[in-house]
Write a protein that binds this DNA or RNA. Structure first.
Length: 782
DNA sequence: AACTAATACTTTTTT
DNA sequence: AGTATTAGTT
């Protein structure tokens, strides 16, 4: 992972009349340019059309990233702009990273960095920090994560006496997000939508929420764009400055932009008009979180004089896979229309197979994978793409039994984990004691007797004095307000934070981090915890510290964390990939399995219910994305029976299966079962459940591969496998050797004698404190 | 403040 | 069915 130094490595802005063009570059223009020779005619046109708005419709596997990166290289090589004059936006950090790397390769790493290449949010923050005062923030504002957001909204609801049961904070948070996605400020919330929450209070709550954010000197993710919009709209001079700066703009995955992002881009593009958007309307699968396919469909009207280039040559998949995918997506209306084609071989047809239930589905796919593996297929080139994450379970169970290594891609991200958020909250408060939400998060974690009532007094005082909670805490410990125990505890906490803060200048940031986690009792909390996850949480904390090494300062690290919810994906080991269709976008594999093509699951019922035909079309695009991930082989399966909310339900094969062109599909009929395509195509599936399965070679092999000790004893491949170091040891066997009658010492209660042992719980008669139940790891032999 | 009982959920996810 | 969060109880 790239080392992150201080920000803004910017080349000086050139004055308008001084073209940034060296003599050697000038010479190069007249010769053949090698990186252009490697492109096909359409790609080349997309790279060389530099002036005016350009939409590149890039179907799956047509070299979209290549066009984008080559285009940047080309602009630089021609000397049309400095790196700092190019705005290039992506949705994910991963995409940004990849683009940075590939541009660097193309131009030989001469350019020290593209300061304006990044995600919408990262660029949004950068601009906001420069002009924070203009949107009522200080340049040091913090970025709230979803937890903080919910906590804040809960407080607002409580203040308004709104029943949180009837009107959940989550719901309002979702609505606010929705408005921000659409670029709607509180004043412009439509009446109808305002009435969808707490009898019309939604608009006012949204306004109150925004006010609170300013008071806290904070912005949520939506604000990073919305406040940018406000900045540009209210300060035309600032806008003009950026319009002038960005000589060229490039946008990746344009079909995923929401209204706010679109407005932002359009404002900026009014300067140079050199905006190039790359996307694929057939891969728009994020409508449910505010993406507007319309943005891409309307491009030509939004940017008059726009040129549209279609990339339809697919370099990824074989003919049959492409044919199947194209045939499927052709059922969608309201698309810009592309026909993917390949010069390559037809390859194998797309396989379709019915199964009795999800367990059999997992069994069949497991066998297929093992067979492929025997033929030399690398597991990391195999992927199982599911519609919903609950489907993963059957596969995980099966793979554990088989001893087949797998990796879950996506899932709970590293920085979203509880322990990581707690830890970073500690760092946040150390650096910035005024961060109320983070302070609240950890004030009683680990438990230190600072519960609801203490917090209430704190809030009261903070509100009365108009100061942050931390400051209020400082005041309150000087009074008799709190009970002695809470008062002492809070005073200790404040003193600790003060001390940690005083060390920032002198101590290495990683050491401070360790010190904080140690002295706060946070690591001890997990060491004491006996749950199975405790060990991996400790491991994650160590990983966090390790990761901090890559930064120079604590502050630099925290800025990164707030924006990059991105775990470092440990590559290296050869594992099958298991993920949702959504997280598969942008990836490709030799061999792709697409289970769960059931009516109600792949066109997901809820999508159908909530969004009707547009929902169905998005589901179809999802299916299309799935198919086009495959290079060589694709296999679709469906199950007759599936458990939904605990109840067994019959399921029908997805309508998308019927929509696949017959020529490109082959129905699997292995081991004598008669799968499908009968008179009504799939009505004979009962026979799949014929007996005798347990005699199949697959089952016997499965038994052989079963790890010793059974499935439950081995670590699930999803958890980190390497658990080392003293932390874990301390959590597993601290109380070993403690027996009744032994003299022990406890930090809080002093010396005593063990009266009773129950697992890791001890009953101890303390000399001073009397009989107490304690956890073994808190005592040591005396 | 810790434990238990009840209740609500159950599509997809980035920043 | 199973979990995860929350409310209520001690």
């Amino acid at each position: 992972m790239a080392k992150i130094r201080g920000s803004a490595l910017e080349a000086p802005d050139p004055s308008p009349d001084e073209a940034p063009l060296s003599t050697s570059q000038r010479a190069m223009r007249t010769h053949a340019i090698p990186y252009l020779e490697a492109l096909n005619p359409e790609q080349r046109e997309a790279v060389e059309t530099l002036d005016g708005p350009l939409l590149v419709l890039a179907g799956a596997g047509t070299g979209k990233t290549r066009v984008l990166t080559t285009r940047i290289a080309h602009i630089l090589r021609l000397g049309r702009a400095w790196p700092s004059q190019i705005l290039a936006v992506t949705f994910t950090n991963k995409a940004a990273r990849e683009m940075k790397g590939r541009v660097g390769q193309l131009i030989g790493g001469v350019v020290e960095g593209m300061p304006w290449l990044g995600t919408f949010h990262a660029i949004g923050v950068k601009i906001l920090r420069r002009h924070a005062e203009l949107v009522d923030l200080k340049p040091s504002f913090t970025v709230l994560d979803t937890d903080d957001q919910i906590r804040l909204i809960k407080q607002l609801l409580a203040a308004e006496n709104i029943d949180e049961k009837r009107w959940p904070a989550r719901l309002l948070a979702g609505m606010i997000d929705g408005w921000k996605n659409r670029g709607i400020m509180p004043a412009r919330v439509p009446d109808g939508e305002s009435f969808a929450f707490a009898n019309g209070k939604a608009r006012d709550l949204y306004a109150a929420y925004q006010r609170r954010l300013k008071e806290l000197n904070a912005a949520d993710f939506g604000d990073l764009l919305l406040e940018n919009l406000r900045l540009f709209q209210e300060h035309p001079d600032v806008l003009a400055q950026y319009q002038q700066r960005f000589a060229f703009m490039l946008v990746d995955e344009y079909q995923d932009t929401n209204v706010a992002q679109y407005l932002w881009l359009r404002l900026l593009a009014q300067g140079s008009r050199n905006i190039c958007c790359v996307g694929d309307d057939d891969q728009s699968i994020y409508g449910w979180r505010g993406a507007e396919v319309d943005n891409i469909l309307r491009f030509e009207t939004d940017f008059p004089g726009a040129k549209v280039i279609r990339l339809e040559r697919n370099y990824r998949s074989t003919g049959h896979i492409l044919g199947a995918a194209s045939g499927l997506i052709a059922h969608n209306q309201g698309r810009l229309g592309k026909t993917l084609r390949t010069d390559g071989a037809n390859g194998d047809k797309v396989e379709v197979q019915g199964c009795w239930d999800d367990e059999e589905e997992a069994r069949i796919i497991g066998e297929d994978i093992e067979q492929a593996q025997r033929q030399g297929q690398r597991l990391s080139e195999v992927a199982i793409l599911v519609r919903a994450s609950f489907q993963m379970r059957a596969f995980e169970d099966r793979f554990i039994t088989l001893g087949l290594p797998y990796r879950v891609v996506g899932g709970p991200r590293f920085y979203e984990r509880q322990e990581i958020r707690d830890a970073t909250a500690y760092f946040d408060v150390t650096l910035n004691p005024a961060n109320d939400l983070k302070f609240e998060r950890i004030v009683n974690t680990p438990r230190r007797g600072l519960g609801e009532s203490t917090l209430k007094s704190l809030h009261q005082l903070a509100r009365a004095r108009q100061v942050p909670l931390f400051q209020a805490a400082r005041l309150i410990v000087e009074t008799e307000e709190l009970k002695p125990r809470a008062r002492k505890s809070l005073a200790d906490l404040i003193a600790s934070f003060d001390r940690w803060r005083s060390l920032i200048e002198t101590m290495r940031h990683t050491e401070i981090a360790e010190l904080i986690l140690d002295e706060s009792g946070y690591t001890a909390m997990w060491q004491t915890e006996k749950s199975p996850q405790a060990a991996s949480k400790l491991e994650n904390l160590k990983e966090l510290i390790r990761f901090m090494e890559e930064f120079d300062t604590l502050a630099g690290f925290l800025e990164h964390v707030s924006l990059v919810m991105d775990a470092n994906t440990e590559e290296g080991t050869d594992r099958v990939n298991l993920m949702t269709l959504h997280s598969a976008k942008g990836l490709e594999f030799d061999h792709v399995f697409l289970p769960g093509w059931d009516e109600g699951l792949l066109p997901h019922q809820r999508s159908l219910d909530e969004s009707g035909r547009s929902g169905l079309e998005e589901e179809r695009r999802l299916a299309h994305v799935g198919l086009t991930r495959a290079r060589l082989k694709a296999k679709i399966t469906f199950a007759q029976n599936r458990r939904t909310h605990g109840m067994w339900q019959q399921a029908l094969p997805s309508r998308f299966i019927d929509e696949l062109p017959v020529d490109h599909v082959e129905v699997a009929e292995d081991r004598g079962f008669h799968g499908s395509y009968g008179a009504s195509r799939f009505d004979t599936a009962e026979t799949l459940f014929a007996s005798g399965f347990y005699e199949t070679p697959g089952w016997r092999r499965a038994q052989r591969n079963r790890p010793p000790g059974g499935a439950s004893s081995g670590p699930r491949a999803r958890e980190p496998i390497t658990i080392d170091g003293t932390l874990v040891a301390a959590s597993t066997a601290p109380g070993a050797g403690l027996i009744i009658g032994m003299r022990v010492f406890h930090q809080k209660f002093g010396y005593g004698r063990i009266a009773h042992v129950d697992g890791n719980k001890l009953t101890v008669d303390f000399d001073k404190a009397g009989r107490k139940k304690v956890v073994d790891s808190f005592v040591e032999r005396s």
